[in-house]
Design a protein around this nucleic acid. Structure first.
Length: 274
DNA sequence: GCCCAATGTCGAC
DNA sequence: TCGACCTTGGGCA
């Protein structure tokens, strides 16, 4: 159940195991068999991520475009690979390692032009290298500053900003004391740049540790004398999935609500208008 | 065994 | 705004 940091990590994991190595490609589940046959025997040229989209480049064969959706998973292991289960959409086997893809929303073989079109429809990604296009926060600001949609909805809109999911959305708004229901056009420019810079730092840490930690050092369980948080999403957070528990900072009750069919979490006392 | 939820997205109405 | 879709794991009988 991945946000952008997971996908960038997976791109690096593929580079570590398969870059410039020939792979065997199969689709035990069968839904990707034709494309897997085209990839079989090719070597991985590139692996990169934009938001929650993963691209594995195999030279003239094109790119495998993967989107894990809510349920998809990629698992790695060392060779020899065990017999695959029948839910494996794509298995890549290299000289030392294998990768199993299960349950993706998208797994398709695409051309350079199709890959480019995906980059163009996605907003800037805090984890992309600075290249003048896919990492330009002003592109997001152009949309946010003109929108009557709520900041909470805008942060989840991948055309506005790519890679932020429900956890980072809730946490970054808390860290900046912003009411999730504030309209984008009422956000100040300096608030936006602070959010973006914070996401760059938080998500880089997310790639490094492969989990989402957003609690500042002075609010960690050790610093506050609280028991460590136990939650299957795996990190230390202020509000995500903490409905009806007390805010680490003000002690008030964390609230939850549906926003665009997703669970929103926030502290109404800490997150108010300017 | 069944039911549900989950860090996501798309298309139909 | 809603259902469909892809899968796994936990709670409960």
């Amino acid at each position: 159940m991945p946000e952008g940091h997971t996908i960038h990590r997976l791109a690096a994991d593929h580079r570590d195991r398969f870059l410039d190595r020939q792979v065997r490609a199969t689709s035990p589940q069968g839904k990707f068999s034709d494309a897997a046959a085209l990839l079989d025997g090719q070597s991985l040229d590139t692996a990169d991520a934009h938001g929650k989209h993963l691209f594995l480049g195999f030279g003239p064969a094109g790119h495998v475009h993967i989107h894990l959706g809510l349920f998809g998973k990629l698992n790695f292991g060392d060779v020899p690979a065990p017999p695959p289960t029948d839910t494996v959409r794509l298995r890549l086997v290299g000289p030392t390692a294998y990768a199993d893809l299960r349950g993706p929303t998208t797994c398709a073989l695409i051309t350079d032009a199709e890959k480019q079109a995906i980059h163009e429809r996605l907003g800037p990604d805090p984890l992309r290298p600075v290249d003048g296009t896919t990492n330009d926060p002003d592109k997001a600001w152009q949309r946010i500053s003109r929108s009557r949609s709520t900041v909470a909805a805008l942060l989840m809109d991948q055309k506005v900003i790519a890679g932020v999911g429900n956890v980072y959305r809730a946490e970054v708004l808390f860290r900046h004391g912003i009411d999730p229901y504030r309209p984008g056009k009422d956000l100040a420019y300096d608030e936006w740049t602070a959010i973006w810079d914070d996401l760059v730092g938080l998500m880089r840490e997310g790639v490094r540790h492969n989990r989402i930690d957003t609690v500042r050092p002075e609010h960690t369980p050790e610093a506050m004398g609280r028991p460590p948080r136990v939650d299957d999403h795996g990190g230390e957070v202020y509000v995500y999935r903490r409905a009806n528990q007390s805010c680490h900072i003000c002690g008030g009750e964390i609230r939850t609500a549906d926003l665009a069919a997703r669970n929103l979490f926030w502290c109404p006392d800490c997150q108010r208008g300017r």
